[in-house]
Nucleic acid binder design. Structure first.
Lengths: 200, 200
DNA sequence: GAGCAAGCTTGCACGGTGTGCAGCGAGCGG
DNA sequence: CCGCTCGCTGCACACCGTGCAAGCTTGCTC
């Protein structure tokens, strides 16, 4: 399907090799000691070629598959029209997280690197922000509101991002003992309940 | 109080001059066309001196006053012990936003620059993230929980960040017609209500 | 007030990132 | 088989951010 010739296969190979080398070196040396030059050498391509595949070093670590894969906004739009926004969002997020968890080892490595280098977290949000805006639009479509001026779409989109972030963090702390979707549900339930102060 | 000598005053002056020059050039030329060299020249100091005051270009734009000013986590801890977490958080955020809105013109310019350059948003979150973690700890203290393992502190801290982000965005869209605190209250009320789907 | 310590400013050099451009070579289609 | 496409490569360049070693002003002390 996705391999329409030797050319595209080779291209995908070098991209995957670069992403893998980036992740491996980040784990071995620490993110701040990873240079594009070393990554390119490890993947047996030239320095310049790295930037033909990724616009920045962080992209190789965080988005190895490229940005054209099914994103959250697309998944949200794919939910049946009858369901409410919150239920649709939950379903879309489940699909997203399930796919991510399919190669849990790589995901854990990535989160480890990010957790050790807070400067990466923003970058993660950066590209996610583009999607977050689309999510807001998708929410607005579902509620018949304006994504720009109305409060709800933007707020819900931002809060969902926050919930996902927290979910990743907890999943990492617990070393993947509990599935991502279960942790996400906890967060979404707490949100739906209005974040009541827990009785300790 | 804060001026304990000519030396410190001069230092604060150059820092302020650098921050002002950064903001002015960003508005005039666009953020991507602002170089540290030009900012330093506009402030009549050397290139190297810029980095004696700011660790990065973004810091001059987003944190002109320095990171040692009262931050949200400190304000949250300053709230009376009896009040609930949500009320305390609301009060702390009010104090924060009120102070920011005091020089509304500069704030609007800053948000304009950020809105035009999404790559800045992450950086904004980055330094804010350090505070967000402290906020989570402060919340945990108040609820008698563990900031690392329990869901609530991290989730609430992340959601508050999201609410603030959305508030800034709406304030900017409305050109400051409504006070920041009023917009924030809208967001917090929607959150406390469990984000019910609005009846359009 | 003379001198000494502290610290802000400056210039220089360096490693790293990300981009534009031009040429080369391998895959692909007629 | 031939030309076109397109990924790979090397080169040059602008910019960022840092370490270091000076200078010079400030402030403190005697």
């Amino acid at each position: 399907m996705t391999e329409r010739g030797l050319r595209e296969r080779k291209k995908a190979d070098t991209r995957a090799a670069l992403a893998a080398a980036t992740l491996r070196l980040a784990i071995e040396l620490g993110w701040e000691n990873v240079t594009v030059e070393a990554v390119a050498a490890a993947a047996d391509v030239s320095y310049r070629t790295f930037f033909n595949h990724f616009s920045a070093k962080e992209e190789a670590l965080l988005f190895p598959a490229g940005t054209d894969q099914p994103r959250l906004s697309a998944r949200l739009r794919a939910q049946p029209a009858g369901t409410g926004v919150l239920a649709a969002a939950r379903a879309a997020l489940h699909a997203d997280l399930t796919e991510l968890e399919s190669d849990a080892a790589a995901l854990r490595d990535r989160i480890t690197v990010v957790a050790g280098n807070p400067s990466l977290l923003p970058r993660l949000v950066e590209i996610g922000a583009a999607d977050e805006r689309e999510v807001a639009v998708a929410i607005a479509e579902r509620t018949g509101q304006n994504a720009e001026t109305d409060l709800y779409p933007g707020l819900l989109a931002a809060v969902l991002s926050a919930a996902v972030r927290v979910t990743f963090s907890r999943w990492h702390v617990q070393r993947g003992a509990v599935p991502l979707t279960a942790l996400l549900d906890e967060a979404l339930d707490a949100l739906a309940a209005g974040l009541p102060e827990p009785t300790h």
